[in-house]
Simulated scan of single mutants.
Amino acid sequence: MDKSKHLLLIFTRNPELGKCKTRLAAKVGDQTALDIYKFLLSHTVNITSELDVTKWVFYSNEIWEKDIWANGTYQKKLQNGTDLGQRMLNAFQEGFESDYEKIVIIGSDMYDLSQVDLESAFSQLNQHDYVVGPAEDGGYYLLGMTALNKELFQDKQWGTETVLEDTLAHFEQEKVSMLPVKNDVDHYEDIKDIKAFQPFLKHMKE
């Protein structure tokens, strides 16, 4: 298994006040939402920095040279496209054009995700054409493939509960590996009962 042909794409937002985790911020406030997002970014670094694959980080707005993503470990790029589907498609396309053979994409707000999960996702691509990590909200937290399939990124209602279902509808003869369902962090309800987030929520009195 040639790990040099493995590529992890990480989509991230620049952590700026009022510009990230807006649905969460509506409940906990902008500063707390930013603090939580920075916590999630740091978790994503922890689970990816030792992963033995090439890693590209795609920023939403601008590339920050000095931040949590170490320049030697991560190659920094800018998301490009009008919607999430177009931006993911462009990232996958660049990866396959650069001769990577197994490419996996994740976001940067998955507290449930571990390095072992990511290693498992890449190993699934040895026997499968695709690997999908379904999210509890009807989307997906991870998508991996061994060849570019543009249809997966077109005509989807991004951010809605139909994304996973509409994506899986494209698979007929292909071998698809489904990972365990996990919870991504978009709303207060996603984190209110998780111990790691309690320090951020002390001010919340329901």
Rank of each mutant, 00 (worst) to 15 (best):
D166M: 07
W56N: 13
L143C: 03
L8G: 01
Y111C: 06
A135C: 06
Q75N: 07
L118V: 04
S177Q: 12
P180N: 10
Q157R: 10
P15C: 08
V131W: 10
E119R: 09
Y111W: 15
N46L: 13
L118N: 05
E119I: 04
S4H: 03
I105A: 15
L41S: 04
Q93D: 12
I47H: 00
E97D: 15
L24C: 01
M145L: 12
D186F: 13
Q154Y: 11
V132E: 04
L125D: 07
T48L: 01
D137Q: 04
I63N: 00
D129Y: 09
T146Y: 09
A91S: 14
D67T: 04
N46W: 09
E174D: 08
S60C: 02
D193E: 14
F200L: 08
N61T: 11
K66H: 12
D67F: 10
E97K: 13
L84F: 15
S49Q: 15
G138F: 08
V176E: 13
G159M: 02
S123V: 03
G144Y: 02
E174T: 01
F92D: 02
T167H: 01
K156M: 12
L113I: 06
L168D: 00
I68R: 11
Y37T: 06
L8E: 03
Q31I: 07
V28M: 04
Y59W: 15
K202G: 15
H187P: 00
E206Y: 05
Q124H: 09
E206W: 05
F11I: 09
R87I: 10
Y188C: 06
L142K: 05
I63F: 06
V176L: 11
E119P: 01
L17T: 01
I63W: 11
K192Y: 10
D193H: 12
L148S: 03
D109N: 12
S42M: 09
L89T: 05
E65V: 03
M204G: 02
Q198K: 12
S177H: 12
N149V: 01
V176N: 10
P199M: 08
A169E: 08
D52Q: 11
Q79E: 15
S108F: 10
V163H: 01
L148P: 03
D190W: 06
T44Y: 02
V53Q: 07
T22W: 05
S123N: 10
A91K: 03
N126V: 08
N46H: 14
D99V: 06
E65G: 08
T73M: 14
D193N: 13
G81F: 14
D52N: 13
R23G: 05
F96Y: 15
T54G: 05
D99K: 14
L148N: 03
V185M: 14
